[in-house]
Design a protein around this nucleic acid. Structure first.
Lengths: 372, 372
DNA sequence: CTGAAAGCGCTTACAG
DNA sequence: CTGAAAGCGCTTACAG
């Protein structure tokens, strides 16, 4: 299969002459070599070339070799548009993420890309920047490309995009979605529990004044993102064990670019209330928060403990290394692709998979400073 | 154009019946609605529908409106494979970067994506992970998709990939490449000068023991990356003004993932030699280096000054904020697309553009500590 | 302003 | 094991 696409540096012995004399061809042809040229030079029929191209078993080895040689000689590359059109299906997997600049999404995209390629699919990556309209747009584009399936790895969620996928019966796997359809499934990362663990950890350390920094994306769209809701639930859950009068929780929601948001949130909070621990919606927010705290002369973790979320590659390189909630990236990519390809191949696969999270302790959390 | 693709929630009044009776159609058709269905329901011809789809001027407004309605009603999305095949060209721009996890590349990809979309092109993003073979593979895929052009934003450089592009006469723009062809250009970021500025800055501060941390990607491929060479040149150039006996330069080249490489390099260096300043090949390497220094109990910048390269979004959030060399991301994306689309539209555009860099001073550099 | 027809470059039954 | 033919779903001269 590999050899098939090889382009030879070798020169054309018989240059493929334009098949149709200009007389009957008003439009310029692509000028690229076609399967027909290969067939002619190799002295076989179209279907034979197609056969070797698609590794059908029914081509004589010697013929096969000859065809392969000609392909290399002419530098032939099959036109995917023509072949996909004729096949009535593609081997494209669309990947849509919310934000390529966030390592969390970049890592997921990279892992999915790897997985998909290793299974013989090509991928098509798009980012929405948390904008539901862009998600909608992305799905439109993918449907127009007739992708075999789409991995919708976003935290925002556009109902119209969903409707498009459902209506066209395009296999899709969402990250944390509650709606399911015959060809639409979801991989769920238990963020609730992760957040629960993080907050319980802080409470057990003795923290009683906690700042929660959220990072909603644009005030525009109505419903808060599911993943945020979940984290909020986990947060609340951890508090249940305590007398509400005993622990003081402040919440700041900063819209926009996550690092900048984390920084702003801390700056606001420092002027307004006391806190000994900061819980951030994701690692990037934590990065900004840490910067804000350190710029204000505070020491982490001695003055303030900080926890992030996602366990991106940044965490272990921060100063101090960041305690965070780890979601299983590899496993996630794997589950998503299994499910997606299951739908594509019309196998029986579960429409819902749940993955657990865990708390990764590093050096950004410790006991609160002694009150004075 | 936007309205054209709108999928209606509205139900089909006249469901599009399969056009061909099963008798003559051995293969299952896609089951999706085709332009023909739209034409039939709207009571116009194919070319009329095609006309409104492609905003040709020659359709009566009322007809246009009716067709648009039907399109929405049926949830019709044109098959890009068919249309691209018929058109003999695509409006796809391939973007290939070395590493999506590196914010430098992620930012370039995002900027290019924005630009391309705003000019009516779709994009196709792939990452090579610095592997020339993957670059080759990426180009193959893009050629098979008959992309209009490719933005080759990589630091590695595969000659075969280049040959493929040249041979197929596919417009391409490289990041820092020395080879040019009729449809292949390059946008050059003056890294040499940037590095020169950074090192001169350190020398002027009084540093005389400098550690340079490189991050070659895999020992495998022969020639060092051009961008590394350039930086090395700038580094040397800054030293010219000084007596070689006066300044002590150590170079460590760590292969692999950049942050981890930076960390390892520092760990090795700390055991072996004295240095008061560290110059890193990129910001991610600097992130790792800073971590290594801080973990060893050193204070930045009082004990050691650190400079990065690229001015990624991380820089201002590190502790301390990182002095780095800024390359103009927006401008770069803009230049690349101008040149690329120039090639695509067969306009007269320069094949080479040079962009300057500048030193962005932050808090990670200061005078060396007093000797004792 | 609209319709019928050819063609883009493949794949895939089907008949040899 | 191979060849001729139809068809995928569009676009685009061309003739009305």
């Amino acid at each position: 299969m590999d050899k098939v696409f090889a382009y030879g540096a070798a020169c054309l012995k018989t240059p493929p002459k334009p098949q149709k004399p200009a007389a009957k061809s008003p439009l310029p042809t692509t000028g690229r070599v076609r399967i027909q040229d290969v067939a002619r030079v190799a002295n076989v029929s179209l279907s034979t070339v197609s056969g070797v191209l698609n590794s059908k078993a029914n081509v004589r080895p010697e013929t096969r070799t000859r065809v392969l040689q000609v392909i290399a000689q002419l530098g032939y590359a099959p036109n995917l548009f023509a072949s996909n059109l004729a096949r009535r299906r593609t081997s494209l997997i669309g990947i849509v993420v919310s934000d390529l600049l966030n390592p969390f999404f970049a890592e997921i995209a990279a892992a999915l890309d790897d997985e998909a390629r290793s299974r013989g699919f090509q991928t098509f990556l798009t980012s929405t920047r948390f904008d539901p309209r862009q998600q909608h747009e992305a799905v439109r584009q993918m449907l127009a490309l007739r992708v075999a399936g789409v991995a919708m790895m976003t935290s925002e969620n556009d109902p119209e995009a969903y409707a498009l996928l459902e209506q066209s019966r395009t296999p899709a796997v969402y990250l944390d979605n509650t709606h399911l359809a015959p060809e639409i499934g979801t991989v769920h990362v238990n963020k609730r529990h992760g957040m629960f663990l993080a907050v319980r950890h802080l409470l057990e350390l003795g923290h009683r004044s906690i700042l929660l920094i959220k990072n909603s994306q644009s005030a525009a769209t109505g419903a808060p993102m599911l993943s945020h809701l979940e984290r909020q639930l986990g947060f609340n859950e951890a508090l249940h064990a305590y007398d509400p009068r005993e622990v003081d929780v402040q919440i700041i929601d900063e819209v926009g670019e996550p690092t900048a948001a984390g920084l702003r949130a801390v700056q606001k909070a420092l002027g307004q209330f006391r806190f000994t621990a900061v819980v951030c919606m994701n690692d990037l927010v934590a990065l900004g928060a840490i910067r804000g705290l350190q710029a204000a002369g505070l020491h982490i973790p001695n003055d303030v403990s900080v926890v992030g979320f996602d366990n991106t590659y940044l965490c272990e390189f921060l100063h101090p290394p960041l305690t965070t909630v780890a979601s299983p990236r590899k496993e996630l990519a794997n589950s998503v692709l299994n499910m997606l390809l299951g739908f594509v191949e019309k196998e029986e696969v579960p429409h819902e998979v749940s993955l657990s999270t865990e708390l990764r302790l590093r050096e950004s959390t410790t006991k609160p400073p002694a009150r004075n």
